[in-house]
Amino acid sequence: MTYRVRIENADGEVVTIEISADELREKGLTLEELLPPNARIVEVEEVEP
């Protein structure tokens, strides 16, 4: 499974990243732990691999 994640950074700019569930598991991280300081998740969407 892959996630498309929209993130708002500290400057108010919204960027989109895609990350797979396998990648998260391998790194032992959650989506929140990948965020840079002062950023927030705006939207998470599951996409087909």
Rank of each mutant, 00 (worst) to 15 (best):
E18H: 13
L29R: 07
N38W: 09
E33H: 05
P37D: 12
L31M: 07
V15P: 00
L34M: 14
L35G: 01
P49E: 12
I7L: 09
I41M: 03
E26N: 13
E33D: 15
A10D: 12
A39E: 04
N38H: 11
A39P: 02
R4G: 01
K27R: 07
Y3K: 01
D11N: 13
R25W: 10
G12P: 00
I17Q: 02
L31Y: 03
A21S: 11
T16N: 05
L34H: 04
A10S: 12
T16F: 08
I19F: 11
A21L: 07
R6K: 15
V42R: 02
L34N: 02
K27P: 02
R40W: 15
P49W: 14
N9C: 09
I7N: 00
E32V: 10
V47W: 11
S20M: 08
E8V: 11
R40Q: 12
E18P: 01
T16S: 08
P36S: 05
N38V: 02
T2N: 10
T30R: 09
L29S: 06
E32F: 09
E46Q: 09
L29M: 13
N9Y: 15
R25H: 11
L29F: 07
G12E: 02
L35T: 04
L31C: 03
I19G: 00
L31P: 01
I41V: 11
E13M: 12
M1D: 03
E8R: 07
E18W: 15
R25P: 01
E48T: 14
R4S: 03
V15E: 12
E26R: 11
D22G: 08
V14G: 05
E23S: 07
R4Q: 03
M1G: 07
P49M: 13
R6L: 11
E46C: 07
R4Y: 04
E32L: 10
G28V: 03
I41F: 05
D22F: 12
T16K: 03
P49K: 10
N38Y: 14
R4M: 05
I17E: 01
K27D: 03
G12R: 03
L24T: 02
L29Q: 06
V44P: 01
A39M: 10
R4P: 00
E32Y: 11
R40T: 14
Y3S: 00
A21H: 08
